[in-house]
Design a protein around this nucleic acid. Structure first.
Lengths: 213, 213
DNA sequence: TTGCAATTGTTATAATTTTCACATAATATA
DNA sequence: TATATTATGTGAAAATTATAACAATTGCAA
């Protein structure tokens, strides 16, 4: 087994390249160089080539990359040549936004159901979906083949929801609650904390202010 | 000037430590060790100490850190000892979610106004705020002392909105459109692409599947 | 054909980040 | 007061990641 460890930063960039290639393809561009990709997404050309090299040889020397071919490979690499059924738990503002968002209903992703704990939200309609009671999660997760759970409940509920997801056979969790969740080691978990990003900004603004003193 | 470059990953963790310390403080815990912080947020104790060392010496050997003191320092370091006025442009689902979100209205942040290009959305109420026409951005940005702009419009509008923000004196931009924006070098910009995180998950799930073959 | 220009894939180098190990300092205890 | 214990701060080592440089390959034009 040739399982070379791939840096997470590389995977992140693969996702960016892939989306850039989609755009090129839509615009009818058939060939592209690492230089142009680099320019388009704001990294160095060497970085682009190095990243791709983790997965194989996709280009032709002296020519560049075929957009369609490379796009297909990036999708395959990212696991997007199949459909991933998502369940969103927490039908608040953020949950609603994600349920109907294009990012969550494209490139192999499909929001299959939405749950909420609050009985006032249950039955409410979001896009095509009706909000289901949280208790239905185990059953529906199985029936709909949910492999990814998205947590958009508040902090106090988040761990409990994660537990239910794990029990329901979910393989990966995307957590928007700004809290560190405990899950078994075989569950993939990723946290999205929007305020962290905001605080990165203020830190850097603070640095600049300090430097200009 | 002792401007040691601080890794972005360190700043990210500072933000995590800071939030963890807030929780400890709320729970009345007064002292904590790097070990306990590490446990609480899922990093190594050496990492915690190394991160803090970028900014000074905050602990007492043999004892640990005073929670309140360290919390205060982390907030200061992150630039959160002041108020940051935000403007959100794009009053769709995500914009609405962020406008009322706690992450965007705590720890020094305050959503001061919301804008939209679409006249059907203008005047609509989100929490305490009324959606303003995009044309008002330059004027309101000045009046409300907006330093951070948040872009939650669709791809095709994002660059234009960024331009307007820059012209309006905004210093930092948080961009949720999955597209690479061009801004002057003196503007801090950060992209949040939620589908990238999703694709990180599927990449890793794919790896696991491959490894179990 | 032959030589030139373009562009990849890859090896070597540099830079960055994390981990490790321990000297140092504070507290508690006998 | 001496000793044991705890836990920080930090310098050195290891690991990781990015950059640079270039040999190899392709296509094109003379």
């Amino acid at each position: 087994m040739k399982t070379l460890r791939v840096p997470e930063a590389t995977v992140t960039r693969m996702s960016i390249y892939s989306r850039f290639l989609e755009r090129l393809d839509r615009n009818g561009i058939t060939t592209i160089s690492s230089n142009e990709i680099a320019d388009g997404v704001g990294v160095s050309p060497a970085q682009v080539r190095k990243d791709l090299a983790y997965f194989g040889e996709f280009g032709t020397r002296g020519v560049g990359y075929n957009v369609q071919t490379l796009l297909k490979y990036t999708l395959r690499i990212l696991g997007l040549d199949q459909t991933w059924q998502l369940a969103i738990v927490g039908a608040g503002n953020l949950g609603q936004a994600l349920t109907t968002s294009r990012g969550f209903n494209a490139r192999g992703f499909h929001v299959a159901c939405v749950f909420d704990h609050d009985t006032r939200r249950v039955g409410q309609r979001i896009g095509q979906l009706l909000v289901q009671p949280l208790g239905q999660l185990p059953e529906l997760a199985q029936k709909e083949n949910i492999r990814i759970g998205v947590i958009t409940v508040n902090n106090s509920m988040a761990q409990e929801v994660a537990n239910i997801m794990v029990q329901s056979g979910v393989q990966a969790i995307l957590n928007f609650a700004p809290i560190t969740l405990r899950v078994p080691a075989n569950i993939e978990i990723r946290n999205v904390d929007l305020s962290i990003t905001l605080e990165l900004l203020t830190f850097n603004l603070g640095l600049k202010a300090a430097q200009s003193l």
